[in-house]
Amino acid sequence: MDWKKEIVTLAYVKQALADLDVHDLWPHCLPEVAATTREIELAESQLGFALDEQYAGFLRHANGWNGFYQSVDLFGTKDLIGNEKMAVAQEMLNSVEEVVLSNCQIERNDLFPIAASSIDMDLFLMVKPTASKAGLVYWFAGSKIDHYPNFEEFFLAMVDYNREEFEDLKREAGLN
């Protein structure tokens, strides 16, 4: 994937959203500066496994993104190592019902958070590389909302969700 192109596309969509968001519904941030090889290695060391190559590829271009989708922050290496965002995400993961996980045919220990909302129940989890469904990304918000075959598909879906948010705000503003 051409991460530079996709990141610029989302930044453009986020800017258009910010222009229409007169009520400041969501944060509209730019992505963080690219992670260094050392930062990625440190995160992998702390996690105890190598990051999925697609996710690591993103991190090499943007080391996380606050307000990635609505109030959801996409985690960078500092978040993966463990901070308040990760602590909250881990609590959210612990609250996901076993029946929900069993319906997804996945074990809690096979998942790690890659994004979470600071104010809602949205939690995005990736399957660890040691598990049978490695690289799969799940979206939970009380129950399973969706899943994506890999990080790239997850990212592209979130770009589309941001576009939909833009269209909704545009309609509300009577700009159609």
Rank of each mutant, 00 (worst) to 15 (best):
H23E: 14
E152A: 12
F124E: 08
N66F: 06
I145F: 05
L156Y: 04
E6A: 05
A35N: 06
L175Y: 05
L59N: 07
N66V: 14
G82F: 06
T9V: 14
E167Y: 15
G48H: 12
K144S: 03
G64M: 04
P31W: 09
A131M: 11
L17D: 09
S118H: 08
D122V: 09
E32G: 00
R38Y: 11
A18Q: 06
A35K: 00
D73I: 05
V137F: 04
E98Y: 08
K4L: 05
F124A: 07
A141R: 14
K85F: 10
V33K: 10
M92Y: 02
W65I: 05
V96C: 13
A62L: 06
L136K: 09
F151W: 03
L47C: 01
N109M: 05
S71D: 14
V13M: 10
N103S: 11
K4P: 00
E172F: 14
A43M: 06
E165F: 09
F112V: 00
I119M: 06
C29W: 08
T37K: 14
G82S: 02
E53M: 06
Q90V: 05
T36C: 04
G67E: 07
E152C: 11
Y148C: 00
A173W: 08
M126W: 04
L51P: 01
V22A: 11
Y138R: 00
M86I: 07
S118M: 05
G135W: 04
L169Y: 13
L80M: 13
Q46D: 07
Y12H: 01
D146A: 15
L20H: 05
D168V: 04
L42F: 02
Y12Q: 13
D79H: 15
H61R: 13
E98T: 13
W139L: 01
N63E: 04
T37F: 04
L123D: 00
V72M: 10
